Computed example of a mutant assay.
Amino acid sequence: MAKINTIIFDLGGVLIDWNPEYVFLKAFNGDKEKTKWFLENICTSDWNENQDGGYPLAKATDDLVRKFPEYEEYIRLFYGEWEDMLGGAIEGTVDAFKQLIDSKAFKIVALTNWSSETFPIAQNRFQFLKWFEGIVVSGDEKTRKPFKEIYNITLNRFNITPEKSIFIDDNLRNIEAARQLGINGIHFKNPEQLKEALKNYQINLS
Rank of each mutant, 00 (worst) to 15 (best):
A2E: 13
W47K: 06
S206A: 15
L198A: 14
A177F: 03
L111T: 08
N184V: 05
N156I: 00
Y71A: 02
Y71K: 13
A58F: 03
I90T: 00
G54C: 09
G30Y: 10
I108L: 10
E117F: 04
G12D: 06
T44I: 01
F97D: 05
F24A: 07
A122L: 09
A60N: 03
L155W: 06
I42A: 07
L86V: 11
F126D: 02
A197L: 04
E163S: 15
N152W: 04
N190A: 05
L111M: 11
G185H: 01
D169N: 07
F28K: 12
V94H: 08
W37V: 10
A58G: 10
Q202K: 15
Q99H: 14
P56L: 01
R144C: 02
N48E: 12
K107E: 00
K98W: 01
T112P: 02
S103A: 07
I203N: 06
F38P: 12
K67P: 03
R66Q: 13
K34W: 02
T118V: 14
Q127C: 03
E149N: 12
I90R: 08
Y55N: 10
N190C: 10
Q99A: 13
R125N: 04
G13S: 06
G88T: 07
I108K: 11
W37N: 14
K164G: 11
K26C: 06
E91V: 14
F167I: 14
K59I: 14
D46F: 04
T6E: 03
W114D: 02
N50Y: 11
S103M: 08
L194A: 13
G139E: 00
W114C: 04
F68L: 02
F9A: 10
E141N: 09
C43S: 10
T118N: 12
L205Y: 12
S165N: 03
F9R: 08
I108R: 12
A89M: 11
L86I: 13
I75W: 02
N200P: 06
P20V: 01
P162C: 09
A110N: 05
Y151S: 12
V23N: 04
N5M: 00
I166G: 08
R144K: 14
L205E: 11
Y151R: 14
L100P: 14
E192D: 15
